[in-house]
Design a protein around this nucleic acid. Structure first.
Length: 909
RNA sequence: GCCCUGAUGGCGGAAUUGGUAGACGCGCUGGACUCAAAAUCCAGUGCCCUUUAAAGGCGUGCCGGUUCGACCCCGGCUUGGGGCACCA
């Protein structure tokens, strides 16, 4: 029989499901391996061919590790709370749960067709109350914790309370604490809790009616939906991620992640080491602290700038400037984030009327207000050095402030000199020093004189944790006498109430305000819900023990599975999920709930698969289409054409005429009798008619071909366009592989002993596969299969002793055909439980070959030597030749270079 | 502006990390099988010169360097992709 992928794939997919072939069970006698995919948000559009790329890679790795004897955990689930389902609900009234479940069912059927080795018994869904119980629990744990800087970890809030009661803490004395009302005490604790409620400038998105985290905003627009975002001060739940900034940064060094991803996280955390300096400002000698990384430029300070939102603005504005300042503040306030970003090149600002005193020079300098200084970073106030900072320079030029260069020989007539190089001048005690030296000297000086202190700042902000939405986890918090109070643990999960409409309430409150009786013991419950990253932050832990009702994960399961050995997913989560997850995990680690500090040991970012759009060229003003190669002779319009009408860039003319009524009577100008389409690589999307559905590929070629082809396309990490041409090549390979076993219905298998040549081909493949899979070079592994098939085909090999191991080797890539052949070979269990074949190196050796021996590049003679000879071996052989008189030389051999079979170059000195 | 990445035939991409550049696949050309097509198989295929062959010459974005030897290392550019960006 021929290779009938359709029946084979259906058959084994059901067989795997029935036999629970891929169920993972904790077994301390076996080594574990945890392979994780970033679980998908089940969108209404379903999967396109780019989505499974990472899933296929991780599946190959899982199956490979299993063949290698590991106890593999390879789960899958759904990140099923989220905005699109809610937006859809607002428009249609359809409950988000209904759409979510429908989308999940579609995702599941699409995933199933590809033959993944997931343990579906461990599936999690973030919107399932049994799951989000533990999201809520983690939030309460964070609420019940503070970050102890001495122990450098999160500790129970009780420890802080005990300190406040006895000795006081920070600026809160014991007297003040003990005299405080419960509400005041609650407010004080909010300053230290890991999960806290506080007023802060937030990204408010009016169209979505909710606040967003920094990573959910890009270029002043919401990542989801692309709506404008504005800055607004609001009281919101937040997570004190900033407390972990240093650990999140230093932890990166121990992770096996790509440099680019680590770099993104480092940028996002944004550590900068500098100095805090105190300037006395205004009539009242108000101490104003500024942060700078360039204390060495202190002699070049010619003014100061406050952020418009700074509390100091009010205090330092003199009456005569009051009106101008108020006008400026109003102007800043009405700008959206996007407008602010767009205008970064033009300086805006206003003078407060006050002056500050440079603590080092004693100079009196004006204090300005400008939006280029951010309230959220550093202290919200800066010392401006226009000669050596480009932003200060622009500002100084605009408002005619003095520019004083303090580095020898620099020209600041056109732009500032920002580089940290050169010799200091006009700088008192720093004169003559190199900049780098001066930075340190100035820091020392400032500290010694008590004018300031060294300080490290991070750009990483606390995460805004409230969303004014319905389709998310409710906060297990109620307000007793206005005091945020945690729900008792036995009341978890606090499930989402049923509401009839999903848009915000008429009074502008979140949708949960529409719920009847959203109270606990008569007190109001929190009305916002948690953001998307809440549910995805610890899902990898829940997979370890998904049905546990008394803990997020049992200590036993956690101790066995520990952490994710391999995590595969897109780079788009670099500054969102991957930061939050690490934070969340570190918190749970601090509090003793998990045994590892970092959750994802190795991380691979699969590249995006882009679409390959096809174009036809309509001659302007006609319904005539000219083939791509001839289009330069005409004036044409480029039109996207559905890629299902195009094969190898050739247009199906009849299909095209039938595609759209307006093309029904289209004429064509052909080249060589064919219409050739133009093409371009674009994002895969419906509007460009370039979406490829994996289901269609499975129909035409089968899942095994899809899997092989996605891997064959190129390196995993690289982004690449999907191009269906070329898929025939791997499909042909599978058909060929099948024909090693069957010619029609005739079984070709023989039990003859394999020859050395055949064994060589097999073992070369074993070695290559092992090496390549460990290096995640799956495209070259697929090539290795084809090479082996070519070799064995040339040898006309149908021997069981060769083909049976080949079936095992192929099984991670093409599990269905492998399973079928494995059973036809007479095995009972799954090929997934077979053992990876042993690699025997000696089979790869050639006996001998001719080397050309040259000295310093000049060929002297040829010699017959073993092909496997390494450099040392050749050197020894050459020395031996010296003895025989074939080579007589007095010079010393410095280096011997061998290219198998061709050249030996001997470097002499 | 800063930080990561990449650049190799007509195309996707290989190259044991300093050692035969272009594996493997697509495409293309020719052939076999067939009434024909599909499928399958065989051969050829970096470019240039040459009627053909032999033999050359040129070739890993560009310019230079190190080396017996460079796609690989160093210096300087050009350019594609991604990230960060009034962060003081």
């Amino acid at each position: 029989m021929e290779y009938d992928f359709k029946s084979i794939e259906q058959k084994w997919q059901s067989w795997w499901a029935e036999n629970k072939t891929f169920r993972a069970v904790e077994d301390p006698s076996r080594k574990k391996f945890y392979v994780l995919d970033m679980f998908p948000y089940p969108s209404g559009a379903g999967l396109h061919v780019g989505h499974p790329l990472g899933y296929i890679a991780s599946d190959i790795f899982s199956r490979y590790k299993r063949l290698k004897g590991f106890n593999v955990l390879h789960p899958m689930g759904y990140d099923s709370f989220g905005l699109p389902a809610e937006q859809y609900a607002i428009q249609t009234g359809q409950h988000p749960e209904v759409t979510t479940n429908r989308n999940i069912a579609r995702y599941r059927s699409q995933l199933d067709r590809i033959g993944f080795s997931y343990d579906w018994d461990r599936e999690v869904r973030t919107c399932d109350p049994g799951y989000y119980k533990w999201t809520q629990w983690a939030f309460l744990e964070m609420f019940d914790s503070w970050y102890d800087p001495e122990k450098d970890q999160a500790r129970p809030i009780g420890e802080l309370i005990a300190r406040l009661e006895t000795t006081g803490y920070a600026d809160i004395t014991a007297e003040r604490w003990n005299a405080a009302t419960p509400k005041e005490q609650s407010d004080i604790l909010m300053r230290w809790r890991i999960a806290y409620q506080g007023e802060t400038a937030v990204n408010w998105c009016p169209q979505l009616g909710t606040v967003l985290a920094n990573d959910e905003v890009k270029d002043g627009l919401s990542v989801r939906g692309g709506f404008p975002v504005e800055q607004k001060k609001m009281t919101q739940w937040q997570l004190r991620v900033s407390a972990y900034a240093e650990r999140l940064l230093s932890g990166l060094d121990r992770l096996d992640w790509t440099d680019s991803l680590k770099e993104m996280q480092r940028n996002w955390i944004g550590k900068s080491e500098g100095t805090e300096l105190t300037f006395r400002c205004g009539e009242q000698q108000l101490p104003v602290v500024v942060f700078t990384t360039r204390v060495d430029t202190i002699y070049g300070v010619t003014f100061m700038v406050l952020a418009p939102e700074s509390a100091l603005v009010d205090e330092l504005t003199v009456p005569s400037q009051r009106a101008a300042v108020d006008e400026y503040l109003a102007y800043v306030k009405k700008k959206t984030e996007r407008e602010r970003i767009a205008e970064t090149k033009t300086a805006t600002g206003v003078f407060t009327g006050s002056y500050g005193i440079n603590p080092v020079t004693g100079d009196k300098i004006p204090i300005w207000i400008s939006e280029y200084v951010l309230a959220g970073y550093g202290t919200g106030a800066i010392m401006a050095v226009p000669a050596h900072d480009s932003r200060d320079y622009v500002f100084a030029k605009k408002f005619g402030l003095p520019i004083v260069p303090i580095i020898e020989g620099c020209d600041v007539s056109e732009e500032s000199f920002d580089a940290k190089e050169g010799k200091m001048c006009n700088s008192g005690f720093l004169d003559g020093m190199e900049v780098k030296q001066a930075i340190e000297a100035a820091k020392d000086y400032v500290e010694a004189k008590g004018l300031g202190r060294r300080k490290t700042n991070y750009r990483l902000r606390d995460a805004i944790f409230s969303r004014q939405r319905y389709w998310g986890e409710p906060f297990p918090i109620y307000f007793k006498d206005g005091i945020p109070t945690p729900l008792p643990l036995d009341k978890l999960p606090l499930t989402l109430p049923e509401i009839s409409e999903f848009k915000p309430a008429e009074n502008g409150e979140p949708p949960l305000a529409r719920a009847k009786d959203w109270t606990y013991e008569g007190w109001p419950l929190e009305k916002s819900t948690m953001p998307g990253f809440a549910g995805s932050s610890a899902y990898y832990l829940r997979y370890m023990d998904p049905r546990n009702d008394s803990a997020l994960v049992s200590p036993e399961a956690d101790a066995y599975w520990r952490d994710v050995d391999l995590y595969i997913g897109g780079t788009e989560h670099a500054t969102g999920h991957l930061i939050y997850s690490r934070f969340w995990n570190k918190f749970l680690y601090d509090r003793g709930y998990v045994c590892t500090d970092e959750p994802f040991r190795k991380l691979i970012n699969q590249g995006m698969i882009q679409g390959r759009s096809s174009f036809v060229y309509r001659v302007v003003g006609t319904n005539t289409f000219v083939s791509a190669g001839l289009k330069d002779g005409y004036e044409t319009t480029e039109i996207h054409v559905d890629i299902s009408l195009v094969y190898n860039d050739r247009l199906d003319l009849e299909g095209f005429r039938a595609w759209r009524p307006e093309f029904a009577d289209a004429d064509f100008i052909l080249e060589n009798g064919e219409y050739i389409c133009g093409w371009a690589v674009e994002k895969m999307s419906k509007s460009m008619f370039n979406v490829v559905n994996p289901d269609d590929i499975c129909d035409t070629y089968g899942a095994d071909t899809l899997r092989l082809y996605e891997m064959f396309l190129g390196p995993l990490e690289q982004s690449k366009p999907w191009d269906t041409k070329g898929i025939d090549g791997v499909h042909r390979f599978l058909k060929r592989f099948w024909r090693f076993f069957y010619d029609g219905d005739r079984c070709l298998l023989s039990d003859e002993a394999p020859t050395r040549e055949e064994l060589k081909a097999l073992h070369k493949l074993i070695g290559k596969e092992q090496e390549d899979i460990e290096a995640f070079s799956f495209n070259t592994t697929v090539s290795a299969f084809m090479i082996a098939a070519n070799e064995l085909s040339a040898l006309k090999c149908n021997k069981r002793a060769i083909l049976e191991p080949m079936v095992i080797l192929l099984s991670p890539f093409a599990p269905h055909i492998s399973e079928e052949l494995w059973h036809r070979l007479g095995h009972e269990g799954s090929v997934a439980d077979a053992a990876f074949p042993e690699y025997v190196e000696s089979y790869t050796l050639e006996d001998s070959c001719t080397y050309a021996v040259s000295f310093n590049g000049k060929t002297r003679f040829t010699v017959e030597l073993p092909k496997s000879l390494d450099k040392d071996g050749v050197e020894a052989a050459v020395r031996a030749m010296e003895q025989t008189g074939k080579y007589v030389g007095a010079q010393t051999i410095v280096k011997v270079i061998v290219v198998p079979g061709k050249i030996v170059n001997i470097v002499l000195k």
